[in-house]
Amino acid sequence: MWVYIVRRLLQSIIVVLGVTLITFVALHMGGDPTYLYVSERVSAEEIQATRVKLGFDKPLPVQYLVYLEGLVQGDLGESLTYKTPALGVVMERFPATIELTVFAMVIAIVFAIPFGVIAALKRGTAIDGGIMTIAMLGQSMPSFWLGIMLILTVGLGLGWLPISGHVALLEPLLKGNLRTFVASVPGAVPYLIMPAFTIAFFSLSRNARLVRSSMLEVLSQDFVRTARAKGLPEGAVILGHALRTAWLPFVTMIGLEFGSLLSGVVVVETIFSWPGVGRLVFNAINQRDIPLVQAAVITFSLVFILLNLAVDLVYARLDPRIRLT
């Protein structure tokens, strides 16, 4: 098991290095970043002095190594917009994004399982057809369009949910204020529903299809037939035997799920005025705030990599064959 963990950790470090390299090169392809640090009225001499001061006169490989050195020390530079450490700005917005992503993940998992199971059990019926049609829609509908439609129908037309905005939920908890956290829940949940559903709908649909196909495969296996032959109630057969086995491929997806949901927040946070990292990245790209974009991308990648690592370890624990491959 330890050999497996070390091997996965080394792979993760290579992935992080790859992400930093790609981000660094991509953001420097846009031209000389010195102009982002000087006003329009400065002279050519002042521009050159700033270039030297910031190290932009050095070759790109040297700049990259300097950047990596800072990264190891937790220094990702100062945001051009906010004039404070870029990592601090990202971490300040991170709780709002985590709230949204976790809520979306709960929707994507909790609703996918019953829909997938029901579709499998009712295979070939109108119920199966209906669920799979909705799942197909969910996978083909762009999130920005779905978000705007929800705002127009549920928010404006029916007036059931707030159109945009945010009530902080995780922030009081991180500050150790449990009472405020509990008190915030009823106010925060209505704001979470539409944006979280917008992000989750694609994953929910994919997961429901995955659970359905996995269940169909398991339901035809001998051990399920044996369980039924033993006279077990149908609920126990489905939940206790079939779903437990069908669950395995789904567990693998959960780690990837979080990453795909995280990547979906950029557009959704903008549409719903959600004060998270996605919107921060969107604005930072528009303003070419390179340190902030780098900090956000690296934070996202680290979260993604760590989650995948955790899922792989759990999976290796559940299925020992994984460690040997």
Binding site: I151, T270, S273
Partner: peptide, 17 residues
């Protein structure tokens, strides 16, 4: 309020918020 998306801003206005 900071509402970056144009259609969301207009919808909030039409909703009376």
């Amino acid at each position: 309020r900071d509402i970056p998306e144009a259609s969301t801003r207009a919808t909030e206005l039409l909703a009376g918020n």
